[in-house]
Design a protein around this nucleic acid. Structure first.
Lengths: 332, 332
DNA sequence: ATATAAAATGTAAGCGCTTACATTTTATAT
DNA sequence: ATATAAAATGTAAGCGCTTACATTTTATAT
């Protein structure tokens, strides 16, 4: 492994000059620069990342904290972020927290211990007051970017999708199709989860639909659980004529249960994941524009690192992707 | 941020002693050790990872190279690996190569530049001779673990599933159900892809079924492509009475196309991903035991890092998970 | 009590960079 | 040609650890 000394010697300059062309911070004579660059090329010189890290306190790595990459939603997000960050020569250290609330502190700390340059949080909820104050203390050390979540504090940035309005509009569209009792299945109360629930409730209220509390069901994120809750509600004779869910997976579970008893009512999911296309009929899904959110998060991040002025919160509209599980636009 | 000097001073010892308790390599007096540990705790001291990296040439990070984490298969693998590595205090730097062949060199190099301790490769094909010699040169620097792929070379380790036999057995089971012309849809010729194709061909030969080349179709990994190829084959009047695919996603596409024309024939997928459960009817899928493979990969890795003797290749059997798209065991 | 071996600890160099400050070289104005 | 400013380069300290080797302390045998 050649070091900066080898390169300097071969070029007949000092290591400082080599370091300067490596970092591009100060100007170097054009010819010297070219010479150094060519020797670097020729020797396949790679600066030692640890030494560089020691000097700069940065290894150009971004910590990505998410709940569970095996879930299609987070997987897509991580994939998008990783791809976008690459363009800026930034790498991803991944840390998944799982669905339990406690480990997230530990796993976030792992990321901090590695001295990442910034942290992107997707999905992992930081909603309790203990959580919030913890995140704030983290933000004092490095930039924190929350995808689909929001905490107001210096150095915490938020990229979100207006899922609340999106959800409300689904209810409105269903009401327009004469649905009266809309079942809502959701799995978590992350920031995003709360927004969606809030949107559903707002829609119900605004349209004057049934607000039977039995219609709102918090369940576990799994196909079977969604299937089972439908069975249970039917047995309990809870009336409903449409199903909105906070997740494509739950929508599919509900759909399967309904199919079994031959009930054909509108069903919608969220996230517009590949799952929604795998189902039969395909699931109409609220697209939270994950691609746009992630791209935007990376863009924001690079600007922050370049000390460019950036907004602390960016919100994109959601859009409803029409498929066969709920057709709201017949002219389509 | 406190440093090792602060801790040493507070304990009235030298930094060497503190470093020793940090690394646990040499023995330290029990009382001194306890004292140091308590001060570390009290000061929330965290060794600087870059300085440590410089000294040890390791930051306890493992590079994971995969094709595309947004795909359910890789997502599950990365998730499993990340979770397992965590237990050994190892972090994941993720790098996705995409489906093009060239970028993988660059992205693998990125990982090497970060001086990761080892590399785990999932899915990204290194099958051409150029690829193989490249991987061999990498293996001279650090351990390489290939999940579901195999190259014989010192410091390259392989954890694989016997998908070839698995595939062959699907053909046999279909033959036992009187299928004559089995369509095969596949998407890539990674090591794993080749094994599966090979298994299919072996099965066909062993059972004396139709070996019409029009039955073997290499397509793009997408729902639509799988759907379209079925339509095309029907129009071309290619006869087939069962469909095997190398991917759950392709199976679902095929299933959708068949459903449209009301043809109910056996369909199987691979990977036993969540997608297979989302389809209706659910897809019978060849489970390549990704969980076992990943757990085994991490286990191997930690043993390698501890200089324990390990096998260079481990093979697990595949198993066919029976669902409604192909019922082979009626007693079930 | 004394010699000797083992255990514990300390000293200081080294890992390979970055960068403030100092010095030299080159360009520009008179 | 000479003074002055700007550009280019070099010197050396510092980043915070690890660890070989040296030294001191403690345990053990006589």
């Amino acid at each position: 492994m050649s070091t900066i000394y080898d390169i300097a010697e071969k070029c007949g300059v000092s290591i400082a000059t080599v370091s300067r062309v490596l970092n591009g911070s100060t100007r170097v004579n054009k010819k010297t620069k070219e010479k150094i660059l060519s020797v670097i090329e020729e020797q396949h010189y790679q600066p030692n990342p640890f030494a560089r890290g020691l000097g700069l306190d940065s290894m150009k790595m971004i910590g990505v904290l998410c709940t569970d990459v095996s879930d299609a939603f987070y997987a897509t997000a991580v994939s998008l972020i990783e791809n976008d960050l690459k363009k800026f020569d930034l790498n991803v250290i991944l840390s998944c927290t799982g669905y339990e609330p406690e480990p997230k502190y530990k796993y976030l700390q792992f990321l901090l211990d590695k001295h990442v340059d910034a942290i992107i949080i997707i999905g992992t909820p930081f909603t309790k007051s203990k959580d919030i104050s913890y995140i704030k203390s983290v933000a004092k050390k490095l930039p924190v970017i929350m995808v689909n979540s929001y905490i107001e504090f210096p150095n915490i940035y938020s990229i979100a999708c207006d899922e609340k309005t999106g959800m409300r509009d689904i209810v409105k569209k269903m009401a327009a199709k004469h649905c009266q009792s809309i079942l809502y299945l959701y799995d978590s109360l992350t920031y995003s989860g709360k927004q969606k629930l809030d949107g559903y409730k707002t829609g119900i209220k605004e349209c004057g639909l049934s607000d039977n509390p039995a219609l709102q069901n918090k369940i576990i994120r799994s196909l079977e659980t969604a299937e089972n809750i439908i069975h249970k509600l039917i047995i309990q004779k809870v009336e409903f004529d449409a199903v909105i869910t906070s997740e494509d997976l739950l929508a599919i579970g509900a759909q399967k249960a309904l199919l079994k008893i031959n009930r054909n009512i509108p069903v919608t999911g969220c996230n517009n994941s590949i799952l929604s296309q795998c189902a039969t009929p395909m699931i109409t899904s609220l697209d939270n524009r994950l691609d746009v959110l992630c791209e935007s998060a990376v863009d924001l991040l690079t600007k922050i690192m370049n000390k460019t002025a950036v907004p602390s919160k960016i919100v994109f509209p959601a859009r409803l992707i029409q498929r066969n599980s709920f057709i709201f636009d017949d002219t389509h």
